[in-house]
Nucleic acid binder design. Structure first.
Lengths: 193, 193
DNA sequence: ACATGTCAATACGGGGGCGTATGGTGGGGA
DNA sequence: TCCCCACCATACGCCCCCGTATTGACATGT
């Protein structure tokens, strides 16, 4: 409610506003919940407005996905890239999961909607990029290539699994300290000395 | 088509037949794709038949979930339970993901549909049961309790993540040998000596 | 003042999925 | 034989959501 752009503040909407609201909705309730009228209600208008900006719901989804994928690069891998030590890099990657939740929540929602033809390629590109990145990190840490590939698989699987369990299933219900302890355990277990 | 109970073989259907067909559909296309008329078409009847056996779609889902949860116990944890060595136990757990795919495919589909009020408690119970089981295994392997909990979290997250990636995202595309090599890597990395 | 372009409201049609009502059919017991 | 009941078909109403068509409001330039 508070972060929603109200009618009084900005009566006129841009496609970017719609795309951003779409990403918010996806992060909260998943891709399936992304309905035109639902979104319109959130923005304080009706769908008559939406179909002036977009030809279809798919067009909105496409634009939202493009925006997310572009932002994702500089919001997840970007800040982490500066860190030389792979140990610290992985730690940061996991810690950011708790801090800046939004992007990871969207990623988690997109994985669950990977059946969708528009979603699949985006998720696949992002996932592949991240896994390659991880693999390179293990490689630079001195691992043989074959092992680095496996370790990257394992690490990324653990990341994805943790996302699903904590964001969707709410299984762990970790406190901040428990979470950091878990991350430390992951580091010790998965990163070679 | 081939495994579907055709009209000629058995013109009369039981609730169990519907529940089984529902699980098949869930495994293939997810919970959202579970529609009454879709299922009826698969079984060679119309929904007039369905609503004689079940009062609603939710009733079918409930029964299907109950059946799966009951079978899951003796199909996943059961055979593994006999194995004493936790190293071999985890190996079997992962290897069964490739052999007997169905139950894991359903679990993966259910995780994705955990928004649903009927699905959530089932997934939560099964997940918790499995993680506890893993934790006990690490405990018996000589790990201190605190570490065993973390390691169980990590291992199960890796399992869930791998399921999502291989079954839904089709990312790894591993051959049988690659898969076994990956499992070996997971064993070596996650199981203490 | 008027016209034009931009954004939005309203009304409508259509498809898909759930659930209901009611009629039909075939096999086993009185 | 005939009836009955378990099982299934057909037809319908409803709701949700997508997309279209039409009209309306407001701002700006001329």
């Amino acid at each position: 409610m508070s972060d929603a752009v109200t009618k009084l503040e900005r009566p006129r909407l841009s496609p970017e506003d719609w795309a951003q609201a779409a990403l918010d909705l996806i992060a909260e309730q998943g891709v399936a919940a992304l309905a035109v009228e639902t979104l319109a209600k959130r923005l304080g208008v009706t769908k008559g407005s939406f179909y002036w900006h977009f030809p279809s719901r798919d067009a909105l989804l496409t634009m939202a996905l493009e925006r997310w994928e572009a932002v994702e690069v500089e919001t997840v891998l970007g800040p982490v890239e500066a860190i030389a030590d792979p140990r610290e890099r992985l730690r940061e990657l996991f810690l950011r999961t708790s801090r800046e939740v939004k992007s990871h929540a969207i990623y988690s929602a997109l994985i669950r909607a990977v059946d969708h033809a528009l979603v699949a390629p985006v998720v696949e590109r992002v996932s592949r990029r991240r896994m390659d990145y991880l693999m390179m990190a293990f490689l630079h840490a001195g691992m043989p290539r074959r092992e680095a590939v496996q370790r990257a698989r394992l690490t990324y699987a653990a990341y994805v699994g943790f996302l699903q369990m904590s964001l969707q299933l709410h299984l762990p219900r970790l406190t901040a300290e428990e979470f950091e302890a878990y991350v430390d355990h992951v580091i010790v277990t998965l990163i070679p000395v």
